[in-house]
Nucleic acid binder design. Structure first.
Lengths: 219, 219
DNA sequence: TTGTTCTCGATATAAAATTCTCGATTTAAC
DNA sequence: GTTAAATCGAGAATTTTATATCGAGAACAA
């Protein structure tokens, strides 16, 4: 019987998933330099991580290394990409063409990481019909219907907090399976919907607290 | 002897810090609705979190609740804000006026969360001298010196990965204490510098993997 | 060939975070 | 008053995550 990573009984730890892109990026630079192989010890030194932790993370992708050598760089990159599903590109809709929404629309890099934002939606009449980063902004009212017809499974919410729940409801109505939510609220969605929150303020809180503690210690 | 939260011997768990803004935002909406008090059970139901976990998180801020009642909403908001240092506003420099950098420059909300981006820097001649979101873009070469003269302690990096390390070095040279890093690389900085990484791709990885697993399960 | 060094991978241990349990306390209803 | 319901706060138990240990395998130098 063939063993694939989807046979894994236990879900992948989220900390592991969050570290994989770090490895991926580092490996890409190694690849660009022409490095053939790399060990966890080397990576650990560069990335300030425990080598054992890296080894366990990488093992999750199903790849195996060789004693004394480590892992083949290109294989490792491929393993991470296929593990994360970055090979088959997902089409996505984005709702909320403000500062952040426009920024995400312009992130060409996403195309290399499994994500293609194919359309943007907003309720602001001034924005509808205009092109932002080369993508046309359409009325939010058309989103659900279009999502269903185009079989789009992924939605990105970059609206203000107060509109995020409505947008999420529309996405669910349109048959969207997963939501990348940049609004700082907890969305209420059916059980089966995958929601990934990306809250800038969470990150800012960690930073603020540390800096405050530091500055206070210095008086 | 007065006990303040800075007397805490043990560092605050990062997961706790990351959840505090979630509570804060929820409490703000309660406040707007005129709610006087709230219990952990109520919050837990709304935010899909364990009430005990919320209770422990809130206890970190030093606030105390009352049985049967819960916490006073406005007190709680104040406790979180002062705990995170969101009351005294930090001036910050931002380097890298691309899509994301420009978006952050336009985030007026930051002013209410202890952050004021006072200047932006870039190496692109086409951007230098221009106003972005009402803030003038200056040459990166002037950043370190200005940081020192203006006593700016916080730097935000929104450059492409390949320039992030150089920018970080400049920030450190300018006496900056803390860096909010949006570039997807691990910065190498002196021990005492606080670095908070905000990697969109980490978040995307979690989402990608879950969606891939889901779609695969459905064939 | 033989010994040395490096690294993987499995297992064990430790630390951190979450969840559960329960007594004490307060409010509000009876 | 007395009782019932709700909730806090402290501590225990569980789960998850991170780190340490160690044997075996592979490359390389002598």
């Amino acid at each position: 019987m063939m063993i694939t990573d989807s046979d894994q009984a236990r879900p992948i730890p989220e900390p592991t998933l969050r570290r994989l892109p770090t490895y991926h990026h580092f490996l890409k630079t190694l690849e660009a330099e022409g490095r053939e192989a790399v060990s966890c010890s080397t990576m650990g030194r560069e990335l300030n991580l425990d080598p054992t932790q890296i080894r366990k993370d990488l093992a999750m992708t199903g790849i195996t290394g060789r004693p004394k050598i480590g892992y083949v760089v290109t294989d490792l990159i491929g393993a991470i990409e296929s593990f994360l599903g970055w090979n088959d590109i997902q089409q996505a809709f984005l709702a909320g063409v403000g500062n952040l929404g426009a920024a995400l629309l312009g992130y060409q890099q996403f195309n290399r990481y499994g994500l293609d934002i194919v359309a943007a939606f907003d309720t602001d009449e001034a924005k509808i019909g205009r092109q932002v980063q080369g993508k046309e902004v359409m009325p939010l009212s058309k989103m659900a219907d279009l999502a269903r017809r185009m079989h789009v499974h992924l939605g990105i919410i970059t609206t203000p907090a107060e509109h995020a729940q409505y947008v999420a409801d529309q996405m669910v109505a349109g048959g969207i399976e997963a939501i990348w939510n940049f609004a700082p609220i907890v969305l209420s969605t059916p059980e089966h919907i995958i929601v990934q929150d990306e809250d800038l303020f969470s990150s800012l809180a960690v930073l603020s607290r540390r800096l405050r503690t530091r500055l206070q210690a210095m008086q």
